[in-house]
Simulated assay, not measured.
Amino acid sequence: MHLTVSLNIASMAGQTSALTFRDVAGFVRQAEAAGLDMIILEDSAPDAPASSSPFEATTLLAALATVTTRIGLVAAASTVAHQPYNLARRFASLDIISHGRAGWHATMAQASREAANFSRPDGFSNDDFRRRTEEYIGIVRGLWQGWDADALLFDKGGGRFHDPDKMHLLDHKGEFFSVRGPLNVARSPQDQPVLVLSVLSEADMDIAARTADVILLDGSAEDAKARHDDLKRRVAVCGREPDSVKVLLNVGVDTDVDRLDTSFRSEDCDGFNITMPPPALDDFVGRVLPEVRRRGLLRDGYRGTTLRSHLGLAGGGDQ
């Protein structure tokens, strides 16, 4: 069973007038000590009221990478607020800083008022946003593959910085973007950071099946099995191994162990993403996790050093 935690930075800031990096780092280190696969750093929910946060998620991820050693660190970053080249470069750099523990969380839903801050006061139609996001994700993933693992030579004596045969121009010209590539950052330690997708409509499912490493699903427990099986079928139709995509159910911290046990053993999911306020972590770690481990549902400790190794995903590092 994979277990992750979503940490909404803006919500944390609303609970205290002086949220500090030390507060956030303490929470994340506690989650790491508990052996959780990853923390997802959220800036806000798609249609949440405007709120203030002292941190931007990707900057916070970089700082947290210096005070942790194993837990995966996934940051939300908008496809509207960033150009795809800059975002791909940022996450490739974050993966290097964290020694292969970084991931990007993208949603398939527009955030209220966001486009107005980036020269699009009327936003996008739902169909335009979907097509734009799919193109955006394809560009980012393509840029992450712009250098082969052994492309950079740093051969000062021979005057060769890289092997040109192992550099791949993206040369993308699409409906919404034109990006030449490659990145001016080395290949990610994981080959590419982990891609997490959420807020999926029916029309988004095939996009997620083609591209995602982790899919976060909302919805009722009653139809979880059908949605899980449908996604795995779509993954296989795309020519990928079904287990190459992890499907996690979004649940609240008040979910009891019996429900997690039943849902996981029924193959409703590959694990759970738990949304919790930071004070709830003590109870979760002290009461829920020991029982989950006693039932043999959760590994003891980390088996590798990269986020892909925690999730059992193919890629670079120590899987």
Rank of each mutant, 00 (worst) to 15 (best):
T305G: 07
N126H: 12
I274N: 07
A63R: 11
H228V: 03
N250G: 03
D23M: 05
E202Y: 09
R113V: 08
D229N: 09
A10Q: 07
E134Y: 00
A92E: 01
T69E: 15
D218V: 01
K246D: 11
A115D: 10
V237M: 10
K173Y: 11
A50Y: 15
L169D: 03
L195K: 04
G35Q: 09
V199H: 11
S17K: 09
I207C: 07
D128I: 05
A236Y: 00
S178G: 07
Y85P: 00
L87C: 09
L313D: 09
I40Y: 00
P182I: 05
R131Q: 14
L311M: 13
R130K: 14
L281N: 04
R294K: 15
S6V: 13
D254W: 02
R294D: 15
S201Y: 06
A209H: 01
A25N: 06
L231A: 12
L183Y: 11
H228L: 11
G181C: 15
F129Y: 15
E175A: 14
I215F: 12
A236V: 00
L289M: 13
S51H: 06
L289G: 03
D270S: 07
A18E: 10
N126C: 00
T79Q: 06
G181E: 13
T59G: 14
S266N: 15
G138Y: 01
T20G: 12
V74I: 11
K166S: 02
H99I: 02
A221D: 12
M38T: 04
P46Q: 08
S51L: 06
A226F: 01
M205N: 02
D268H: 15
G271T: 07
G316A: 04
E135N: 05
D318F: 01
I71F: 13
I215S: 04
S78K: 05
A314H: 08
S51N: 05
S125H: 06
V237T: 13
P189Q: 08
A34E: 12
W147P: 03
D270Q: 09
S44W: 00
T306W: 04
R265N: 12
D191R: 13
L7P: 01
D230F: 01
N8K: 05
E114C: 08
A221G: 11
P182Q: 06
L297W: 07
A203M: 04
P49H: 10
F272K: 01
D171E: 13
I207G: 06
G312N: 09
Y136W: 09
A76L: 02
V185A: 15
A81G: 06
G26H: 06
N86E: 13
